[in-house]
Design a protein around this nucleic acid. Sequence first.
DNA 1: CACTTGAAGTTGTCAGACAACTATCGCGAA
DNA 2: TTCGCGATAGTTGTCTGACAACTTCAAGTG
Lengths: 238, 238
Amino acid sequence: MSNFPFQRLQADLAELIAKTPPGQRLVSEPDLAKQLGVSRATLREAMRSFETQGLIRRRQGSGTFVVGKVQALDSGLEVLESLETMAKRLGLDVSVSDLNIEAIFADTELAAALNVPEDSPLTRVRRVIRADNRPVAYLVDTLPEKTLNPDDLLADFHGSVLDFLLARGDSVASSRANVSAIGGTAEVAKALEVQRGDVLLHFYSQLFDHNGRVVDYSLSYFIPGYFNFHVVRRVGIS
Amino acid sequence: MSNFPFQRLQADLAELIAKTPPGQRLVSEPDLAKQLGVSRATLREAMRSFETQGLIRRRQGSGTFVVGKVQALDSGLEVLESLETMAKRLGLDVSVSDLNIEAIFADTELAAALNVPEDSPLTRVRRVIRADNRPVAYLVDTLPEKTLNPDDLLADFHGSVLDFLLARGDSVASSRANVSAIGGTAEVAKALEVQRGDVLLHFYSQLFDHNGRVVDYSLSYFIPGYFNFHVVRRVGIS
DNA sequence: CACTTGAAGTTGTCAGACAACTATCGCGAA
DNA sequence: TTCGCGATAGTTGTCTGACAACTTCAAGTG
């Protein structure tokens, strides 16, 4: 087919990875290169690409492993619920780790997103969601300090800002979520224990109260495959 | 920070790409490797990763270029409308290319998705959507031949299966779209003129008529950045 | 003017080598 | 026996240098 070793190689590698059981080690790079008829440098470029896609994971001194998937969490997007609630509804076991709460001040971007003056005091909540003890989502919420004080959280926070606000009786009506796909930045990649640039599903959303005011500005990053988000779309909305 | 050249390199490269105007050529690999203090092999691995993310494009003999973005198309996902309709609503200029219509027979997967017997005659419609003359989406629709005959299309098809069905007065009620992020397969990558494995936003959806029967099985692949899909999520659906 | 030829510059691929790290096995000490 | 530890083989990470394939453009040729 193709005259470029790299493209042939990607097809061969894809097939090899597909038929290799998750968790199993691939043959070593020198052997694989010989077996596939390319140099180790070219093979490594292809492997880097597959690692960026999240299909394999390389560990120096140990080997290259095919990554496996756990059961997917499925949810309709039109229902606003926390990942914790969603997991409980499905009877799955998720946990929260790397919880980080800090007080910051609004820069231009945050001020615009939250509709507050620049340099306003804000509260930022970051954490990693784990399923099957593997990181599957990285969530960053930013709220005005007036809405959520860092000290408030320490008392009774289980990982979901939404659940916390609802439990407190706050006015929360809806959220507008933008969905996209991106390669993970350094911060996100580190949190999710993947490589910078790996394929991630990305939500950028704003939470509104019943008066239409922005309550929360949220960035969510999901490793594909662990979640199934779906939307019901209807014709002729009027 | 990091002891691994590759991670430092990714940070440096990301910065360099970010501050380089779209469309402009980067300095050559040997020069860049010297400038960043790594070998050309390591640099090329990092560049492969960024190419997989769709941030740069390499052309043999010519150079490496930073890719630019056109204005994004924005749409609410809960409204089911074709990309063409959406573009017209926004006054943007999109076109259809690489239109391919073929008659196939249902394999196990298609039979399950469309709820028809295996080996049933089906019609498959594939095409590329272009904005600013660049490929931005790849769409594959598969329908029972009874619903859509290949010959029907030749008369009056403008790129959207949904618009065609609606214009014909078919019963189309809603669609269930699963949203995910994937690395492009060989077929998709070729159609979108990107590298296999590049980050793409992916919709897998079924179109239902008013009786709840599956009318169309659709796979959509979007290059991130050209589209802004959003969903309004509400609390306490009952 | 149209066409060819060549050179310079670029990315694509290769081979071999060494460094850094990991897992494992065997042996000696407690 | 059991624990700890060092040697060792095997793996990925990185480097160097080289050549092939391709693109571009300008000079030369008819």
